[in-house]
Amino acid sequence: MTLLHDADLTAAFDRGADSYDRLVALNPGYHAHLRRSARRLALPDGGTGRRVLDLGCGTGASTAALAAAFPHAEIVGADASAAMLARARARRGLERVRFVHATAEDLVGRAAHGPFDAVFAAYLFRNVADPDAVLRGVHDLLVPGGRVVAHEYALGGRRSHRAVWSAVCRGVVVPLGTVTGDRALYRHLWHSVLEFDTAPEFAARMRRAGFDGVRVLPLPGWQTGVAYTFAGRRHPVTAGQGR
């Protein structure tokens, strides 16, 4: 299958925005897993004095997870889809969040809204044309010692992981997406995982982008071996360099 990219993918997310939250809510643990990954940024004091970027925030489910984990942080949410972003802006409890309409590539390339103490990215990197460039841009957006967490579908490498993911997509995800008229989007999401890095490969990609202390943390339930939290940080400043 040919995956959707750039403007075509953004248009598909725009079309699917109204039904997206209803479909993902059928995934057991979806919101709990986002909250688990958000907490793994481990910002002290509820995020007091910290700036956090939710890159590829979609309809704001990941932003809500960040707001719950770090109630005192300044949070910026960014997404390429105007329709998804409109739903995020309307989500209750996110009134203090500043939302930006921008692609991941544009935002990290301009670095106009940085620097940040932490960057969170849920289901983003397999949907960008050049994940290495975006990872390097995220690295440069962070303050020294700043933290990154990617919450992502990435297969563990076993045949059983691939089989579970395909079974769920064939039996549940694509049929429901077809009912809502968004079959192309959900077929893309299915195959984007199959064609993306395995979990060890994505961790290696993070290290190549300059991140230290990269950890690969599996998520529980049926998603074990299918979805992970990837955590890392920009190298802390050395003595004499300042912040």
Rank of each mutant, 00 (worst) to 15 (best):
E105Q: 13
R215G: 05
R162F: 07
G177C: 06
F125C: 04
F120I: 10
A90K: 11
G213Y: 09
V193S: 04
A227D: 07
G225Q: 08
H188R: 07
T224I: 00
V164A: 15
P220H: 06
T198K: 09
P144V: 01
G145T: 02
R136F: 02
V128P: 12
R183D: 09
F120A: 05
R162E: 13
H101M: 06
A154M: 02
R87S: 00
V148A: 06
F116N: 13
A111F: 05
D132H: 13
F116W: 13
A184M: 01
R215A: 15
T178C: 07
A90Y: 01
A199K: 08
H151S: 04
R89V: 12
R136G: 03
G114W: 10
H151T: 01
E195A: 07
A88T: 08
E152D: 06
E201N: 05
H101W: 12
G181F: 09
R215E: 15
V173T: 15
C169A: 13
V214D: 12
G156Q: 04
F120Q: 08
R215D: 14
W165D: 08
R87G: 00
V164T: 15
G146R: 11
M206W: 10
R98N: 08
P200R: 12
A129D: 10
A209C: 02
G146E: 03
L176T: 10
A167S: 12
W222V: 04
S192C: 02
A102Y: 12
V174N: 06
V168Q: 09
P200F: 11
H151A: 06
R110N: 05
P144G: 00
D197A: 03
R136H: 10
S192H: 03
G145Y: 05
R205A: 06
D140C: 00
D182E: 15
G109S: 02
F211Q: 07
H113A: 14
R98P: 10
L107A: 04
R187F: 01
H101E: 15
H161S: 13
L124H: 11
R110G: 14
G114I: 09
T103S: 15
D130F: 03
E201R: 15
Y186M: 08
G177F: 08
L124P: 13
Y186K: 09
S160K: 14
V97D: 06
T224D: 14
